[in-house]
Each structure stands twice: as C-alpha cells, then as structure tokens.
Amino acid sequence: LRGKKKEELLKQLDDLKVELSQLRVAKVTGGAASKLSKIRVVRKSIARVLTVINQ
C-alpha cells in the first residue's frame, strides 16, 4: 500500500466503500454467512488505506 500514489489509494478507498455498502445490503436481505466475515475484512482494508493516506 505504501508504494502506491495518493490517487490510486483514493480510488481503492472508493471501491472498498462501494463494496462495503453492497455487502451491508446483502446482509440486510439475508445474505450468506461468508459475506458477514467479508464485511470485517473490507472494513479493515478501508482502515489500512486511510492510515496510509493520513501518514
């Protein structure tokens, strides 16, 4: 992550946020259990990207 440019990080952040919103919709509509663990992974990925951006 640290080797990427800021523009790439921001694009990745947008993609992750879109994916997270889709997973939340799937959870509300009764999605599979595998998607519940994926939510945690995506949230941590967002946190990692934000950490690198803010450093």
Rank of each mutant, 00 (worst) to 15 (best):
L23F: 08
T29E: 01
K44F: 02
L10F: 10
T29L: 15
V18T: 12
V52N: 07
T51V: 06
L10W: 10
S21N: 08
V28R: 05
L36F: 11
I39R: 00
A26G: 08
L13V: 05
E7P: 08
V25S: 06
K11I: 01
G3F: 14
K17E: 03
L13A: 03
G30S: 13
L16S: 07
S34W: 08
L13F: 12
K44A: 05
E19P: 05
D15F: 09
G30K: 14
E8T: 13
S21I: 02
K27Q: 03
A33M: 14
V52F: 12
V42F: 09
S21D: 00
N54G: 13
S45D: 06
L20A: 03
L10T: 04
R40T: 07
I39K: 00
K6Y: 05
E8D: 11
D15E: 13
I46V: 09
E8G: 14
Q12P: 04
D15Y: 11
L23K: 10
R2Y: 09
V25T: 04
R48Q: 07
L36E: 01
L10H: 03
R48C: 01
R40I: 09
L10Y: 05
V49A: 08
L9E: 06
V49M: 08
I53W: 07
R2S: 05
A33E: 04
L9N: 02
V18A: 13
A47M: 12
E19C: 14
K5H: 01
V28A: 05
K17W: 12
L36M: 07
V28T: 09
S21T: 03
R40D: 03
A26K: 12
G31K: 10
S37R: 13
L9H: 02
K4S: 08
K5E: 02
K44P: 01
D14K: 15
V41E: 12
E19V: 15
E7D: 08
A33T: 05
R43P: 13
V41M: 12
I53D: 00
D14R: 15
Q55M: 09
K27S: 07
V18W: 09
L23M: 09
K5P: 07
K11P: 02
V25R: 08
K4W: 15
I46G: 00
V49F: 07
A47P: 01
K44E: 04
R24L: 15
R43E: 01
L10M: 11
K27M: 03
S37L: 12
L23Q: 07
A26R: 09
V18L: 10
K6E: 01
K38F: 06
V42I: 11
S45M: 09
V52C: 13
L36V: 01
L23G: 04
K44V: 01
G3A: 03
V49P: 00
A32D: 01
R43L: 08
K17G: 04
S37P: 07
K6C: 01
I46K: 00
V42Q: 00
L20N: 03
G31P: 09
V25E: 09
R40Q: 04
L16M: 10
A26Y: 05
V18D: 07
L50Q: 01
T51N: 09
L13C: 00
I46E: 00
D15S: 12
I46M: 04
L20T: 04
K4F: 14
I39Q: 00
A47R: 14
A32M: 14
D14A: 14
